[in-house]
Amino acid sequence: MAGMATHVITGAGSGIGAAVARRLHARGDELVLHARDAGRAKELAADFPGARTLVGDLAEPSRLSWALSHQTLPEHVDSLLHIAGVVDLGPVGELTPKSWQHQLAVNLVAPAELTRLFLPQLRTARGQVLFVNSGAGLNAHADWSAYAASKHGLKALADSLRYEEHPHGVRVTSVFPGRTASPMQVKVHQQEGREYDPSKWIDPESVATTIVTALDLPRDAEITNVTVRPSS
């Protein structure tokens, strides 16, 4: 993606999303940063001068179309980066429908809906959709059922989309990071009742490097699925 590319990014407020946004912002690309409310949008605009923001609640996917219809959408989109996510651990015997629905909404249904809404621009640009999935998208451990189900679903979404959009020249990438040193990881450790040591996990910058590599890959190839693991 040489030159001024435009990227729509969810989850740019922290962790992997912030690392990716910083990298693309530093090289002069155009950023359109999703925020869940006007307050968050203001913070993102301050952190990334010149970036545009889009406001909509990923927890309510059915309202995203309405929310976006009242805002100015970018006419040109080179990449749509789905990096936002939520996690809530618990055994199947205790997780409530509310917890299931929240994780499915934010981690799976909202990415599907945002993809639907931006597909016309992505097809025109012969752009790329990138999903930050999780190791939990490939394996589900005890207490991870709802989150892992949302991420297994996200892999299915990406795989179907890749087949559907191949004729339109849209590339589709899933990135499966292992545990990453981020605010989400702090929450996971709290829920697991474990001591948090960020040095044990992947630096978000390493995942950002993987993502930018997938975006910048020459047009003759696409990175379909890439797993990023802690090396220690």
Results as ranks from 00 to 15, higher is better:
residue 155 K to H: 11
residue 172 V to N: 03
residue 144 W to H: 14
residue 155 K to E: 03
residue 149 A to I: 08
residue 153 G to D: 01
residue 162 R to N: 13
residue 223 I to N: 10
residue 185 Q to T: 10
residue 166 H to E: 14
residue 139 N to R: 09
residue 149 A to S: 12
residue 153 G to T: 00
residue 199 S to K: 02
residue 167 P to D: 04
residue 220 D to F: 07
residue 207 V to H: 05
residue 191 Q to S: 07
residue 184 M to D: 13
residue 184 M to I: 08
residue 145 S to L: 02
residue 224 T to L: 13
residue 146 A to M: 08
residue 151 K to Q: 04
residue 202 I to G: 03
residue 133 N to C: 13
residue 162 R to L: 08
residue 164 E to A: 09
residue 156 A to I: 04
residue 154 L to F: 03
residue 210 T to I: 09
residue 164 E to R: 03
residue 194 R to T: 14
residue 162 R to S: 14
residue 152 H to D: 07
residue 199 S to N: 07
residue 141 H to R: 09
residue 183 P to I: 02
residue 166 H to Q: 13
residue 139 N to P: 14
residue 210 T to S: 07
residue 148 A to D: 06
residue 174 S to K: 01
residue 174 S to L: 02
residue 133 N to E: 11
residue 182 S to G: 11
residue 201 W to G: 04
residue 221 A to R: 13
residue 170 V to S: 09
residue 191 Q to F: 10
residue 194 R to D: 09
residue 134 S to P: 13
residue 223 I to V: 15
residue 220 D to Y: 11
residue 221 A to Y: 15
residue 219 R to I: 15
residue 135 G to S: 08
residue 157 L to M: 05
residue 143 D to K: 05
residue 200 K to R: 13
residue 154 L to Y: 03
residue 144 W to A: 11
residue 223 I to K: 07
residue 209 T to W: 02
residue 173 T to M: 04
residue 198 P to K: 00
residue 148 A to C: 06
residue 150 S to C: 10
residue 204 P to M: 01
residue 151 K to P: 15
residue 225 N to R: 04
residue 202 I to M: 02
residue 212 V to L: 02
residue 164 E to W: 07
residue 170 V to Q: 07
residue 154 L to D: 02
residue 181 A to D: 10
residue 177 P to L: 00
residue 171 R to F: 12
residue 164 E to Y: 06
residue 214 A to L: 08
residue 224 T to M: 13
residue 138 L to A: 05
residue 187 K to P: 13
residue 203 D to T: 09
residue 174 S to P: 15
residue 189 H to Y: 12
residue 178 G to L: 02
residue 176 F to N: 11
residue 176 F to T: 05
residue 212 V to H: 06
residue 192 E to H: 06
